[in-house]
Design a protein around this nucleic acid. Structure first.
Lengths: 346, 346
DNA sequence: ATTTAGCACTCTTAAAGCGAGAGTGCTAAG
DNA sequence: CTTAGCACTCTCGCTTTAAGAGTGCTAAAT
């Protein structure tokens, strides 16, 4: 009784399958008729009572059919479902959506979120990594007007940040060229956090630069490096939420949409703890740890760059979603995106 | 009769004022009681019948109060309302929200859309200009890996685009430096569309560069300039739509949210025809020219850079919105954003 | 001549009542 | 152990009903 025998597994699977299609409680008759398990409705009813006792399904009210619980979905995802295989057509569709990889990294992210939402019919999310640990590839300060400079930082696989700086009156074009060369030579190739620490320590700075340059460099560079390191997030398919009958409740919708507008909340949503291992992660309902999202599931995977996990992509949908299909979509898309990122640079 | 006398104006104003507060049809009794016009309900009823005949108000059904029509709002906006004056506190709140102007231009846009939505309680939008007519300020191609180059374009007030290029095996570091210098000298200071045309014409290119360099430059540069020129759009406050009782209908909500996700549609929404004059524009209901938005109004204004209209900001809300307040918010925010942009560069 | 009070009428909305239908659990027979 | 049968429960959609809000019209008042 404690573990599920074949029959109960089949019935649980049938309930989940049917419920994902209809969003309605599933009755014993339906299962008896539509799924040829060779059992009568009464037998199925008994099994369903067992499943309920074990916590895999529940009844919204006494005389309704069964609805899968979070535990039910969890068991289904872990032990029951077979990860669907994407059709070749769908794979091609995903690959072809990346029409122009050479554009900005932001475009790659936006495009990916669009793909995820279009073919999943749920909400697609893409998150870039925080920039702290990334390596500076190129650095340049140049003059854009009489009293303003623009610092441009190019970070590892083509992410760009920029920042406006006040120009000291005394600073000549030659000084600037000197500073630029000095900085390029010493800063490029190090991670941003490393540089940040370096800039904050006067001793290190002094040892790196000529006494003469040091004065001007010091505060200028500190400002130049003071860009956003936060991850960026791209999201598409918000209107898909409306197709889901379980979100008829306006308040719930509002709460969800509200979360989806807040960067921090969203990054918590995607940023799962297990050290960004590769593979697809499924979090169901309260596992997401966010009150407004208790009716949702998040399926996410890391995309990689240089064989290492980089950022995260994901699909947000109702707990009732078609896990096999979405898992395979997220999996494949993460792989293709990794490829695109790799082709793009390196 | 054809033009409105004072009394009818007052009553129309009262109807609109009351309706923006309650979202309900407004009856004659309410006006008689709450607005001290010194008139009885019956008199007001007569005036209301006149207003209805003239098309400024309508009844949802025979025995309901009056609701303003588009024409009514139009008249109100054009001739009745006094543009509210923002409180000093609100002004300060707006100005303080720009905590760090020196960050990327994108950040300025995002921040502005956030401000608009937070203090208007509707949807806030910010659109950047298309890049076609803008001037290239800085241009640099550099090597990021064995076989890849990265082209970075800095456009006028600090917008940045980048693009990945394939490196010809034969291209040496010296060649690249030469090309860079040649391009900087000849390209910086021209508008992107000008450059695009220039690159597409072999004769012009040939006349600009040494025969020796020309071969390598030609295709490389064409690729480098092939970035997105489309405007970018930032949007905040989607969840505010839910607070509006007129959008209880899920289908309508879905349609609106759907539009708000599509860049092109959104840019049409904001991009009003009258040649981007300064000042605040109000479009009401069907004036927006978008079926899903017939219950909405768009209030927009251009923000400027170097005394010239640059991009557009706006607020999207129900037709029932508090026009005086929102108009002044949009107006003031556009001005502050222009200042920020100006402080940022130039 | 305009304004106002009074009144009959209309239409919406919320609550209540009702019946059909779906699904269950239990029991007894296969 | 499985299945047929049956009584029971609960939801959902429908109609009915009553209350309330607001109007338009008419006749009196200013």
């Amino acid at each position: 009784m404690s573990t599920l025998d074949v029959r109960r597994r089949q019935i649980l699977e049938a309930i989940i399958h049917c419920h994902t299609l209809t969003a309605q409680p599933v009755g014993s008759r339906v299962i008896a008729k539509r799924y040829n398990l060779g059992l009568s409705a009464a037998t199925i009813r008994n099994a369903m009572a067992d499943l309920e006792e074990m916590g895999y399904v529940m009844q919204p009210h006494t005389s309704a059919g069964r609805v899968p619980t979070e535990l039910g979905y969890r068991f289904y995802v872990d032990s029951l479902m077979e990860v669907g295989i994407l059709s070749e057509a769908e794979k091609i569709k995903i690959r072809l959506s990346y029409d122009d990889v050479r554009r900005e990294f932001e475009y790659l992210m936006e495009q990916t979120s669009r793909i995820l939402s279009t073919i999943s019919h749920y909400v697609g999310v893409v998150m870039s990594p925080g920039l702290q640990t990334r390596v500076l590839k190129h650095f340049e300060i140049f003059q854009v007007s009489e009293d303003k400079l623009l610092a441009v930082l190019v970070v590892e696989p083509g992410v760009i940040r920029n920042r406006v700086l006040e120009k000291e009156e005394t600073l000549t074009g030659e000084d600037l060229a000197k500073i630029n060369n000095a900085l390029k030579a010493r800063f490029v190739g190090r991670s941003l956090i490393e540089l940040q620490n370096l800039v904050d320590s006067p001793e290190q700075m002094r040892s790196m630069f000529d006494q003469q340059i040091f004065q001007e460099v010091s505060s200028l560079v500190r400002d130049a490096l003071d860009v956003t390191y936060d991850p960026e997030i791209y999201l598409q398919g918000r209107s898909n939420i409306f197709s889901q009958p379980e979100f008829e409740d306006l308040r719930r919708m509002e709460a969800i949409l509200d979360i989806l507008e807040k960067k921090e909340q969203l990054s918590h949503l995607l940023d799962f703890s297990p050290g960004m291992e590769m593979g697809v992660y499924v979090r169901i309902g309260s596992e997401i740890n966010c009150e407004a999202m208790e009716q949702c599931s998040v399926i996410s995977a890391a995309y990689q760059w240089n064989q290492r996990p980089f950022g995260i992509i994901g699909v947000i949908g109702p707990t009732r979603m078609e896990y096999p299909r979405i898992v395979s979509i997220v999996d494949y898309t993460a792989k293709v995106m990794s490829q695109m990122l790799q082709n793009r640079l390196v």
